[in-house]
Each structure stands twice: as structure tokens, then as C-alpha cells.
Write a protein that binds this DNA or RNA. Sequence first.
DNA 1: TTGAAAGCGCTAACAA
DNA 2: TTGTTAGCGCTTTCAA
Lengths: 341, 341
Amino acid sequence: MKPTIYDVAREAGVSIATVSKVINRTGKISEKTRERVAAVMEGMGYAPNLVATALSSKKTFMIGLLLPDISNPYFAELARNIEDRAHELSYNIVICNTDNHVDKEREYLTFLQQKGVDGILLATGLAHPESLGLVTDRQLPITVIAREVPRTPVNTVLVDDFMGGFLATSHLLELGHREIAIIVESMDLESSRQRLKGYRAALEEHNCAFHAERVAVSDFTVASGMEIAGGILDAPDRPTAVFACNDLLAIGTIQAARSRGIPVPGELSVVGFDNTFLCGIIDPALTTVGQPIRELGRQAVDLLHKQMSGEEPARQRVVLLPELVVRASTQPPLERTSAVK
Amino acid sequence: MKPTIYDVAREAGVSIATVSKVINRTGKISEKTRERVAAVMEGMGYAPNLVATALSSKKTFMIGLLLPDISNPYFAELARNIEDRAHELSYNIVICNTDNHVDKEREYLTFLQQKGVDGILLATGLAHPESLGLVTDRQLPITVIAREVPRTPVNTVLVDDFMGGFLATSHLLELGHREIAIIVESMDLESSRQRLKGYRAALEEHNCAFHAERVAVSDFTVASGMEIAGGILDAPDRPTAVFACNDLLAIGTIQAARSRGIPVPGELSVVGFDNTFLCGIIDPALTTVGQPIRELGRQAVDLLHKQMSGEEPARQRVVLLPELVVRASTQPPLERTSAVK
DNA sequence: TTGAAAGCGCTAACAA
DNA sequence: TTGTTAGCGCTTTCAA
């Protein structure tokens, strides 16, 4: 049987209160007993039972992380950075794949609370903000990542999606493209809507008309990107460029083009979003909007940590800025080049 | 304050034991009180505090998952399947990124035990098997995934790496390749050694001499694959095919070839290992050895579950069989084709 | 500086 | 069928 605090106390000839104090370095303990108790603990191979500690101290040092799907490279990278930072602060991460399914979100949320996690990191859909009430009502610290929950006062760390959409589109416009299609993940996500707005704003700034037909809605898989992009490329008025709202969709677009013998970037420029490691893997290397994914993860943990430490920081929204990462999948449109000549 | 079992008991006019029984559906309870208590719980919005439950029942319904890096697509996919199965069995997964670093492994291992996880899933290096003692000594259920720990009686679920190496190499040999290089992840891993053995066995079976110079050691990143492959491709006696021991390395190899103007599969065939979703993303689509990653995850959880349920199944090693997935990155060597003509 | 004792919220004998 | 009670292993207040 594993030794308990009682065993240590008996062995060291002190009370459990004293042992507890040397474990936690709290209260006043003479150096002498401190050493003796420490030696006994060492000798017995004693390690505190953290479940018991959690019960009496009401801290589990666990954080629940809700995301759509850990096998999606974007979320995998995010999770990695989150876990790294959490580990530094000695918290553990419990992962929950929600598939953006409201029921699963709710289920995990209530369950995590019962398990006594100290906080929640939410990087998932949550189409129905009232689910958030499940958490906020219980005073459980929470930070939302890369998702905007409109009209809800909750701490958030995200990327300026509007700017991202603007940067991507402006890049294409500046290369000379005028026929630019956009593929968004889902109009249910505020981030998608913002990226679309950025797209429109860029068009407007370049006096380029917005056409609703240039907007296609997909989801977040390569396959769907390929399918949707296929439709776009088969249309009679095929655009010269596509802004895909995440890297997976952009890759699907490149594949759709390839299968149709449309050279990228020769006849079609493609811009992605996220700057996952996939961008460097595919051919041509993907021009994309880079999210500071490491910072996103760290800051989210730090913000949550403050709440968990009772600092109760003013509700805030930390907006990180994206940046354009130009690689090989974009170039000026052919038509234009020749027309100029 | 959240209601406790005492609040429910008082409100329903019964003892806490009775409430506990209706929560857990244990013991004999009249339908009448059962309903009344249930109604009260519902009404108060009562939910058991699982930390307390864990302390008295010694079950946390948590599983620790150790892997090198969740941002590696292979492990991300594995983690997804593991979490899915665990969730079905109502267990939560705590992820731990070890970077194959022994110190981190040990740290997580001891820590997880203190936190009272019900079991450990080990999909990470653990170069020093004695670290395993940290777990087995404490009678904590554990299952090792996709790693062989030689001379240690521990439940394991893995893929037949020897067969995988054999399949990959045979495929190349059958296409007519004779100069086949192999890039392994690390000679510290039993899986790498097995794949290498499979490679040698295939060569032998085809009466093809083994040359130690054809073996290169890398690690598990695209960058390192690119670097190592670069060395291979720049050598005077460049091989006509490369068997890379994971998809990331294979991709690095393709990139190295591309940057040198060596067409794949035209002048260089490449085979990967794992069959991650990346294979379908890159150009040319990668021929690879497919691991039944879903089964790997599920069976590991199931095997662990048996141990956690006290079934104490006979120590076993479940060996799943890989299969060759032929895509576009392999074809007969050019030289041969012309020589035959 | 140290210790006694009362929880934390639940489970599970054992009695009634 | 229901209730009493003693833990589970630790924290923390209050006295000594």
C-alpha cells in the first residue's frame, strides 16, 4: 500500500498537520523537524495523493480543453502549445473532441465540472452561446480561443480574422487579381464571417465589385475543400484566384486544380489561412495568413491561469494580429500580365 | 454553493446513503423513494462531485496518454481514436507530450499516478525500460502502444513493423529497384529496428545485397528527413528508391528530390510508413505502409480497460497487421525500363 | 513551533 | 428497504 500522510507522521514522530506543512511549505516549521520529516518522506517513497488534496483544497490542477478535432493539424498545434504552457504552470490538460457538436460540448462541459477541473479552454464551436451558461453560471474560469462569442462577456484570445481576410485578399488584389473567390468554413462561425468581411473590405478598397456568387461555403476538411473548389473551377467564369479560409481547404483547392490540369499558381493563385506546417509540405508551397498559434495557446493559458488564481482580471479580449506569409501559390494573373505587355 | 449529497438527503428526507444508492443504482431502493430522490436531485440541479467519488472509490475515470508530440499527425490521429474509445467507456484522456525525453516521461508518470489516473497509455519512447517500473511497481494498469519494450512483460498493442518494412521493400524490389536506401527514425526504437530487419529480409529474399551505407538515421520531422535525404541524393551512387520509415520523412525526401530537380517517381520512388492523411495531400500521393491506426487506438483502450476493470487479462501482445497502400510515388526504375527495351 | 480536530463530499459495511 | 457511521487522504483553523 502506498504510504499516506499518517504513515509519515507516525514514522517521523510528528502530527499530520506538521507533515502537511512541510509538504506545502506553509506555516512555521523548525528547520530541524522539516528536515527530519523530509527525510522520512524520502525514505518511505511518499508522494501526496492529489485526489485527496483536490478534495480538501478544491484545486485539481486540471484544465479541460474543448476542441473540434485533435487530428486537425491546426488544433493539434494549438493543443501542443497549450499543453506546453499548462505544463510549465503544472496543470494537466484533458482533451475533449467535440466535432463541433453541441451535444458533445455540453456533455463534456458538465462532466468536466463534476470532475472538478480548475478551468476550461474553449476552442470549439458552441453555436449556442447559452451552453456557455453551463460554465459561467458555476463561476468556473473559462477562456475562449480563436472563437468570438458575440454579446457574451467572456475572456477571449483570438486572431484578428477581419484583418486576416483583408490581408489575404489585398495580397491577391495587389498582384492584379480581380476575380477572386472565397471559400469559408461555415457561416455559423464568427471567425468565418469576419474573414469574409475582411475580404469584402479589401475588394472595396481596391474598387473591385463584390459578387455573392464568389462566396462558397464548405467545412474544414480537405475533401470538402476539393469538392467546393471543384464547383468553382468548373464554372464558366472561373476566378483567377481563391482565398480559402483555412489551409486544409486551400489544399483541397490545389488538388481540385491539379486534377483539372489547372496549374497553380500559373492559372490559379491560392491563399490559405492558419499557416499550419502543411503549407511547407505541399507543392506549391502555400501562401497563407499566419496565425500566431503559439502565442494564442500561451496567452489563453495565461489568461485562464489568472482567473484560476483568483485574480479575476477584467474581462478582456486579447486580439493577436495575423500576418501574411507569402510562398509559392500566388502570382499575378496570366491574363493581366499579357494584357499589360 | 453547489448542492452536496447532504443537501439532497435533507431535502428528500432520507439519509445520504440512500441518495448515494440512487445515484449509483446500487443496493435495494423502493421505486417510490428512488423517484422522490431523483426528483429532488433534478430540482436542485445536483451533480455528484467526482473528486469526492474518486477519493472514496479510488477511481478517477482518467487515463494518462503519453506521446512524443501531439502536433505530429500520426500521434494526433492516434490520440483522436483513443479519446473516442475512452469517451465511449466514459473515461477522460490527459495528454502528455514527452518529446521522447526520458525526464519528461518520468515526471509525467509519477505525476499522473499522484493524480490517481486509473491507467496509462504509453505511446512514447521510454528508452530506459526501468522507467516502466515506476508504473508496474505501483500496480497501475498500463498498455504500451506501437512500441515494443523488449524483455518486459507488459500489455502491448502494436503493428508488425517487420512485416511493414518487408512489404515496403518488397514492393520496391518487385517494381525492379535494386538500389534502395532506407531512412529510419532512430535506432533506439525497437520499431525502427524491426522495420530495418524487414527491409533486410526483403532484400535477401530477392537476392539483393544489403549495403550498410544505404541505411541512414534521421528523426521524425520533415526537416530532418529532407536533410538526410539530401545527403543520400547528392551521393554519387544515388539510389533509385527510398523507403522512409514514416510519412514525414518520406515527405522530406520528396522535397529534397524536388529541390534537386529529381522527379518523383520518375527518377526516384519513395515509400513512407503510417498512412497519415498527409499521403493524400502531397504530390505525388505517397505510397506507404498503412497502420490500422484506428484499431490501434481502440484496442489499446480496450486492453487497458480490462486491466482497469480488474480482469487482469493474461499479459499479451496484440499485433495488428499493416498493409501496403500503393499510390503515385512509386514506379519501376527508369534504367531498368530502358535496359529491358 | 506543533498538534487536535473538524471538515472536503462521497462510498460501503453493517445495523436496524 | 433505509440509516448510521467509519473511512478515503489531505488542508486548515484554532489552541496549546
